[in-house]
């Protein structure tokens, strides 16, 4: 009897890229539900638009690059980018802003670098930063979260759809009437104008740690992150690195001078901290790969996030921190190679 020739090993791998990406998407579901609950159906519009333009951008680039469109789109990596974008953007975002971010993420950040696996920068964050710089007004339009005693206007499906498609409100609504500064903005502005953190804590929008509503989105995001850790889709080093990098300096400053610095708990439960730690920084393609390297990489993101939030001109800093550390990834990987078994123990680096 005759047989085919093949190379060892002869065991089918237990996992594949599509299943990894799908699980990341599943893990985002609790956070997405919380987001919609507090900030309205805009998230769903953003997600749909981001998904459509990510898919279109990826498909177009694949065709241009003579790559198989169906099999590559089937790996769901573009959908993860779309989802992360939807989380990063305010619930109310005109469609062209979302589309710009999605197309930049796919066309420039991902495929001009060679597609999945070859991109140096996190596509979602690259796309987000481009629109953050290009459409600063739109990116600042956050509404108050839907919490009973807050002065909020929970937008209806029609209002949201209208704003998403045209960038305008019905006559009875105005931009100023519904937009609210985010807790990060409030605290940043407050600290800069010599208010103490303790004073700001009594604002109705502030919760136990971070902003009300935001805290709960953080909790639900962390549930998804924990599930990813359990499933071993991500490893503990990057989340721990990010959180340490953020909480350590925040804690130190707060400990020595709580009047002029916000508490670490506030930074943990504000903005994109938890999403960044579990879902953005852990993008394997653009992160460091050695265990030690991942700790350093994560720590760098956390630390830079804190620095930008505290001393930079942007309220949140996760996206910039991720992109900055992306640049450092090759060097980190090179310098943190573990000692190969059987090689002499050497000092730092090599």
């Amino acid at each position: 009897m005759d047989f085919e020739r093949r190379d060892a090993p002869f065991v089918t791998p237990s996992t594949d890229v599509a299943s990894v990406m799908r699980q990341v998407l599943y893990a985002l579901i609790p956070a997405a539900l919380a987001y919609v609950w507090y900030f309205g159906p805009g998230f769903i519009f953003n997600l749909l638009i981001a998904a459509i333009f990510c898919a279109a951008g990826e498909a177009a680039m694949l065709r241009l690059r003579h790559r198989p469109v169906e099999t590559v789109l089937g790996d769901f990596s573009a959908m993860v980018t779309a989802a992360l974008l939807a989380f990063a953007l305010p619930a109310l975002t005109p469609w062209w802003v979302t589309a710009t971010a999605a197309l930049f993420a796919m066309v420039v950040a991902k495929h001009l670098y060679g597609g999945l696996g070859f991109n140096l920068f996190n596509p979602a964050m690259a796309g987000y930063v481009v629109v953050l710089v290009a459409f600063p007004m739109d990116l600042n339009l956050w509404t108050a979260p839907r919490i009973g005693d807050l002065d909020y206007h929970y937008l209806s499906l029609y209002e949201t759809a209208r704003y998403t498609l045209t960038g305008t409100f019905p006559d009875y609504l105005s931009f100023d009437a519904i937009s609210r500064a985010t807790p990060l903005d409030v605290v940043k502005a407050g600290l800069n104008s010599m208010s103490t953190f303790e004073e700001m804590r009594s604002y109705p929008m502030m919760g136990d740690f971070g902003g009300r509503g935001w805290e709960w989105i953080g909790n639900f995001t962390a549930i998804g992150g924990a599930w990813l850790l359990l499933r071993k889709i991500i490893r503990w080093q990057i989340p721990v690195g990010v959180l340490t990098g953020l909480l350590l300096p925040a804690g130190l400053f707060y400990f020595f001078d709580p009047a002029v610095h916000a508490s670490p708990g506030f930074y943990l439960f504000s903005g994109g901290t938890i999403l960044g730690a579990f879902f953005i920084a852990t993008d394997p393609v653009t992160a460091a790969t050695s265990p030690r390297g991942r700790l350093i990489y994560g720590f760098g993101i956390g630390f830079l996030t804190y620095a930008i939030r505290r001393w930079g001109s942007y309220a949140d800093g996760v996206a910039f921190a991720v992109l900055l550390m992306n640049m450092a990834t090759p060097a980190i990987d090179y310098l943190t190679r573990p000692r190969i078994v059987g090689h002499p123990k050497k000092t730092w680096g090599r």
Partner: peptide, 11 residues
Amino acid sequence: KPCIRCGECAL
């Protein structure tokens, strides 16, 4: 498929 640098191989 392209390597996504998940690092499982190194583990």
